[in-house]
Design a binder for these strands. Structure first.
Lengths: 142, 142
DNA sequence: CCGAATCCTACATGATACTG
DNA sequence: CAGTATCATGTAGGATTCGG
């Protein structure tokens, strides 16, 4: 509930001197907000969901699984996920090299929250498109 | 589970001629993917979460609640949410004008999936920052 | 096969000023 | 108060090329 007073001082520097629990994604400069902004990235979320649904995958498998992702964005997103402790990168020194990405516990936890979001989107896409169409028609008389 | 074969043809045009259930956020050109990419927007998600946590709010209240959002982005995000049937905009023709935004059922549903995501982020921010620090140190010898 | 490094463009976003 | 319009710009992200 974000505390008792929703309209209260939200400009708290997000980390009180003594009180804990001060991390707040609604606070502009809070580390939580920064992390949140990074996590709610299209590619990162799809990657996590794919790894959760299909298990560890190679780079090229992931690129095929996540439709439309470029090598650059895939690499970049995987790096960030690895850096934050969500994904583990394993290199098998063969020739040609084989690299496998898998979820760490932290990433698996997060992926469990993401899956419902993905399902919900698929199940309500038509409804939202219909709403959009209605909205656009109602505003045709501009 | 994304069907049985995870490595199967993901390039399905996302909408079979007869079969339903074809909406797939992993498919590049699927309407679901487009919607998904729109929904996982930093500002939109924070707005939905704020409305869910604090109830209907005025424009300026929302701007204060969602730290760092500009009027432009707030307006733009609210328009999209309204267009997609997630948020309702109510104008009270007073002077000065009063405009209140509230969740429609569809938006409330989605917000329920978003709240855990926000909490999880706040609860694991420190852990991710620690992982990041460790990662960066391990790669200092580059 | 798995990336890193460059280059380059379009769009997202902020800043600012104006309106009803 | 609640926007809209315009301009400026940074950067996300695609295309391409090179390396291990």
């Amino acid at each position: 509930m974000r505390g008792t007073a929703c309209e209260a001082a939200r400009e708290t520097v997000c980390e009180g001197a003594d009180g804990e629990e001060a991390l707040d994604i609604f606070a502009q400069r809070c580390p939580s907000r920064v992390m949140f902004a990074e996590l709610v990235d299209k590619w990162s979320m799809l990657i996590l969901m794919s790894l959760a649904a299909c298990g560890p995958q190679r780079f090229s498998e992931l690129q095929r699984a996540v439709g439309g992702v470029s090598r650059k964005m895939l690499t970049q997103s995987l790096r960030t996920l690895e850096r934050d402790g969500l994904v583990r990168r394993t290199v098998y020194p063969e020739t040609p090299p084989r690299v496998v990405y898998g979820l760490l516990p932290l990433g698996a936890e997060l992926a469990e929250l993401l899956a419902p979001l993905g399902r919900w989107t698929e199940q309500h896409t038509e409804q939202m498109i219909a709403a959009r169409k209605a909205f656009d028609q109602a505003h045709t008389d501009g």
